[in-house]
Write a protein that binds this DNA or RNA. Structure first.
Lengths: 224, 224
DNA sequence: CAGGGTTCTCAGCCGTCTCTCAGGCCGGGT
DNA sequence: ACCCGGCCTGAGAGACGGCTGAGAACCCTG
């Protein structure tokens, strides 16, 4: 069983390496996101242990990137205990399990074995919010049973909003995740929110995609 | 929460300002090392974002200088990706964390929050006082189970009062932390306290937000 | 190279939020 | 009881954030 550990704290990394080797795993280390991504792509691992806070490329983006490339290797995410990252996001991005630091070594090994038993990760399920459903794999959106035609950009925006439904999402965050920059004019977000509304909001009914003035947008998850 | 951003590229600087403001921070900008140093000395910031490459005085020296003066404000360093400066040097000089450009906005905010949490004695994710609860991340306020709609300014004021609940907070302090100035007419504070009361105080019950004549305001933490 | 679709910029409009002002209220001191 | 100073509040002006229509730039595809 081959394990890749992506962790920038040397101390933690080598402790894991030592421990997992003693359990009989073959362990490789990467100390930043770029190395980690590279190794994960070409290393043929059975499971990857991935810290979130990493130099160069965050664990988030490593995971996202791998899944975008249809690499379904099981991923166990590690996060600092304070919740600046919502772990739900990590799972949405395609991680299979997570642990918050500080964690018990025994628990880590147990979860790793569980992942190995389960095998390769499933493709992410269909996202739902209210009467909207979005299938990332098939690139399809339904309102009720009615298909909705979206352009790629609109689709990416809706997907991001649905992954974070019920949360207030700032234009800057949207820019970063959907446009991949954050220092461009946020007006483009407003424009695309407008496009989406025309396509997904039922006329005469309360908007699913609401503006939170001064803060961003919120996609109502369920009539709320 | 007051943040100082020292960054000479205008575009990046104002993007950060916009983004961080949307997150609820009070943001000041400095465009060179000299201004940055001056503001950091006298501005009473909760955290400083400091670019390394700066006109007049480098970020390095700003950091070094501040630490020499026993100023322990948390500092997050930003560097260009090319390794002209070794980040280890930055940490040696007393920076608390660093990011290399190009960096992810989400990671920046996460690290900022981590620094804030580490610096000030750790604070809970959701603030509570009496039957009020306020979630800074989700930008949501509840009275009991009833959501309360607040404008950005009202939200910032309530957040500050809740962070210091049970303490008497002067109008000057409020002005400084919520309005980012201290030499404006304190009447605006009175006006906004009025707005908040109408939204969060239950009619016919004792006010949660009390006036302490001649001193300021106090948000009762628990029916007291 | 033309045509259709998509993305993005720009400018104007509108509604909300912010802040100022002035007058009234209230509490504390004498 | 009366006055003074601090506080409250309604009204309104101006600033600001967000929305949208128009159209330019940029793809693809044929």
């Amino acid at each position: 069983m081959r394990v890749l550990v992506v962790e920038d704290e040397r101390r933690m990394a080598s402790a894991l390496q030592r421990g997992l080797r003693a359990e009989g795993f073959a362990v490789d280390l990467a100390h930043d996101g770029e190395d980690g991504l590279h190794l994960a792509r070409h290393g043929d691992y059975d499971v990857v242990v991935l810290d979130i806070m990493l130099p160069r490329i965050s664990g988030y983006n490593v995971c996202k990137q791998l899944r975008a490339e249809k690499n379904w290797v099981p991923i166990l995410m590690l996060s600092a205990k304070d919740g600046e990252y919502d772990m739900a996001d990590g799972l949405d991005l395609g991680a299979d399990d997570y642990l918050t630091k500080p964690f018990s070594y025994v628990v880590l090994v147990a979860r790793l074995r569980a992942l190995l038993r389960r095998g390769a990760s499933r493709r992410p399920a269909v996202l739902r919010a209210g009467d909207l459903s979005l299938d990332p794999a098939r690139r399809r959106v339904l309102r009720g049973h009615q298909p909705v035609e979206l352009t790629p950009r609109e689709f990416a925006l809706l997907e991001y909003l649905m992954r974070r439904h019920d949360e207030v999402v700032s234009k800057t965050e949207i820019l970063e995740h959907v446009w991949d920059t954050f220092d461009t004019d946020p007006n483009v977000v407003e424009v695309y929110v407008g496009y989406l509304r025309r396509k997904i909001d039922v006329p005469f009914s309360r908007n699913a995609l609401r503006t939170v003035r001064g803060a961003g947008y919120r996609l109502a998850g369920d009539g709320g």
